[in-house]
């Protein structure tokens, strides 16, 4: 089952259940091939070398980025960074951190019911080959592919200007909610699909209606997968910048109401980096951001795993 995955991020499980014996037999066969023809060996070695080099370079790049940020950032995490109010001497990231949590909380509170209900509709209420279902899937895929700056512009036009909310926490959260909707919907759909049909039959057999079956039997047993999707959505929302600059603005204070302008951690990081005055603090902020993403990802993977085991 592919819980914990938007359409790209699933290194599926088939790798793990490949039998070990096959691997061993393959290597012994490789040796025999080596002995039989010299030319083939040389080209095979070349190919193997290229594959190893390509893999090493790409993994190296990616691990280097994380390592570099951690090494440069951790020494600069100081207590002043966590003071309640931001000013240009302490460059505190605390307001941004709180804003991030508020923003993500509101966005998810908006997106989760819609995403989950949509998934329920697609899995439990429709037949295969339904036209509407196809359209909904297509639209969800389209939403997932729209660049975040286009969301940002849309949020600016609809929430900030047309509805007159101004640059605000609420406008940012609504924009984010639309962005994470397809993520939550798709993962919930996968989780609901993974519930065995015998559960449904059992529930119907005991005389429960469809609604009761959905909420008392199916959703509870798909819960880990649904949560994994919600957490993936959190991950996407936490890292978002382009969609928020023109919807939530860049005021580095904890807002007094939901219609005040705010700055999330990722936006804070962008402002620090582009001003270029507080690079050390930018490194430290990057570390905090990375840690958040790591925590979010680990818990999502753990939940997805519990789903497949349980």
């Amino acid at each position: 089952m592919r819980a914990g995955a938007d359409r790209s991020s699933s290194l599926g499980s088939p790798g793990s259940d490949r039998p070990n014996g096959l691997r061993r037999s393959r290597s012994s066969r490789g040796n025999r091939a080596n002995r039989s023809s010299r030319g083939a060996t040389a080209s095979a070695r070349l190919v193997r070398g290229t594959v190893y080099a390509g893999a090493a370079i790409s993994m190296g790049f990616l691990l280097f980025i994380i390592g570099y940020i951690l090494v440069m950032g951790i020494p600069h995490i100081r207590p002043e960074l966590f003071e309640w109010h931001y000013n240009s001497t302490n460059v505190s990231l605390m307001p941004a951190l709180i804003n991030t949590l508020l923003m993500v909380l509101i966005a998810l509170a908006l997106a989760t019911p819609f995403g989950l209900f949509a998934a329920i509709y697609l899995v439990e209420y429709t037949k295969r080959g339904n036209r509407l279902v196809k359209l909904i899937r297509l639209m969800a895929e389209t939403l997932a592919g729209i660049p975040s700056i286009v969301y940002g512009l849309f949020g600016l036009l609809l929430f900030v200007t047309a509805l007159g909310w101004g640059l605000s926490l609420m406008a940012g959260a609504c924009t984010l909610a639309i962005m994470v909707l397809p993520v939550i919907m798709r993962t919930s759909e996968e989780a609901l699909k993974a519930v065995p049909d015998s559960y449904r039959e059992g529930s119907f057999g005991l005389g429960a209606g469809r609604l009761r079956t959905v909420f008392k039997v199916i959703v509870p047993s798909a819960m880990p997968g649904i949560l994994a999707g919600v957490i993936l959505g959190i991950g996407r929302a936490v890292g978002e910048t382009a969609a928020l600059i023109y919807t939530a603005g860049t005021v580095a204070e904890v807002p007094e109401g939901i219609f005040d302008s705010t700055r999330t951690l990722a936006v804070h990081m962008y402002v620090l980096a582009s001003e270029g005055l507080h690079l050390n603090e930018a490194y430290a902020t990057a570390v905090i951001l990375l840690l958040l993403v790591i925590i979010i990802n680990t818990s999502s993977t753990a939940l997805a795993r519990r789903m497949t085991k349980g």
């Binding site: 914990g4 790209s8 991020s9 290194l11 990616l62 980025i65 994380i66 940020i69 991950g235 996407r236 936490v238 890292g239 978002e240 910048t241 382009a242 990722a266 990081m269 962008y270 980096a273 930018a282 490194y283 990057a286 951001l289 990375l290 993403v293 790591i294 979010i296 990802n297 993977t301």
Partner: peptide, 14 residues
């Protein structure tokens, strides 16, 4: 890999 897919783009940019 899943972690790397989730790193915010500002961090990459920085």
């Amino acid at each position: 890999m899943e972690l790397l897919a989730g790193i915010p783009s500002v961090v990459y940019g920085f």
